[in-house]
Design a protein around this nucleic acid. Structure first.
Length: 313
DNA sequence: ATCCAGGAGCAAT
DNA sequence: ATTGCTCATGGA
């Protein structure tokens, strides 16, 4: 366990004796897009989780979750922050690898968040060939237009599939998400159709074609093996290898996923001399080397690569 | 101006 | 199964 005790206070929840958690490492390793830094040293963030505004602040050995209750923690935040997992043994195993030892030292406070699958799906569809500030802006715009108002300060929850399905492609295009508008529109329709067919299947048997569409239900995807889940996710429009890996790792608990983007390509080349290899080959190399810990290895390497701005000639 | 960003779809091979 | 081109958008 990476914390000792929970203490309820008037305006939040305090975790004491917290290990392996640094807000900057958790929120700026490219896995989540709805957290804003409130201080200079990256110990205090404000974000939106499960339709509620939350502040996270590191105070020495404590982690203070403002606006959270013990019920919020038991119901979702514990899982969201991956507090069911002890990171010390995991980091020790990865640090056997001399290259990762350096990366783990740099991003010692990283944890892999378990986020909402639909929000993660749409967020990473938006991420393709896009910059992080622009991704954040797009998610904010989508939430403000289609999500529920959740505070008096203009905070909006990410829309449910039902809510986002009311968006037209033209409206989405107008939010500045570029050519990804049709992907977001299409993938949302696929999610809604899968949900509809799942209910329908309780009343009657589905045709083969309907079965295939129903298989895209996000709750069903979580039950699949890593490779089956990987293949299935890529049936969503706008979802290829990279986005599928991100959705698996950041929302479906598949720790063996190994998202490979331009930064990972640089990092794998820098550390493991895989230059010239195609993206699928680099993914294979990562999974071969790190197995079920591939996702963690990837996050430490990604954070290190961006932090050090490593360049390959 | 050209290049790049947590890439994917599509056609051609 | 793999490679090359194209796809909006804004910042460097």
């Amino acid at each position: 366990m990476d914390y000792k005790a929970l203490i309820e206070e008037k305006d939040g929840l305090r975790l004491t004796g917290v290990k392996n958690f640094h807000p900057r490492h958790v929120f700026e390793c490219g896995q989540a897009f709805r957290w804003d830094r409130l201080d200079d040293d990256g110990e205090h963030y404000r974000g939106i989780v499960a339709g509620k505004v939350l502040e996270v602040k590191r105070e020495g050995e404590d982690l203070f979750l403002r606006h959270a209750t013990r019920e919020d923690f038991d119901q979702g935040l514990r899982r969201y922050f991956d507090f069911g997992r002890a990171y010390t043994p995991l980091k020790k195993r990865l640090a056997q690898d001399p290259c990762l030892k350096e990366a783990v030292k740099e991003g010692w406070g990283i944890r892999i968040l378990q986020q909402d699958p639909f929000e993660t799906l749409i967020s990473f569809i938006l991420s393709s060939n896009n910059g992080i500030p622009k991704i954040r802006q797009g998610i904010r715009a989508i939430s403000a237009r289609y999500g529920r108002l959740i505070s008096g300060e203009g905070d909006y929850a990410f829309p449910t599939p039902e809510e986002l399905s009311r968006a037209t492609m033209e409206e989405l295009y107008g939010l500045g998400v570029g050519y990804r508008a049709k992907y977001i529109h299409g993938a949302t329709a696929q999610v809604c159709e899968a949900q509809r067919l799942k209910k329908e299947s309780q009343k009657r048997s589905l045709t083969a074609e309907e079965e295939e569409a129903a298989a895209l239900d996000l709750e069903e995807l979580e039950k699949l093996s890593t490779e089956e889940c990987y293949e299935r996710l890529q049936k969503f429009v706008g979802v290829g290898p990279k986005v599928a890996d991100c959705v698996m790792l950041f929302s479906l608990g598949k720790t063996g996923a190994f998202p490979v983007d331009v930064w990972m390509k640089k990092a794998m080349d820098y550390f493991y001399q895989v230059e010239g290899k195609s993206l699928p080959r680099i993914r294979e190399a990562g999974q071969e080397r790190f197995g079920t810990l591939a996702g963690f290895a990837q996050q430490y390497l990604f954070f290190y690569a961006r932090e050090k701005k490593i360049r390959i000639e």
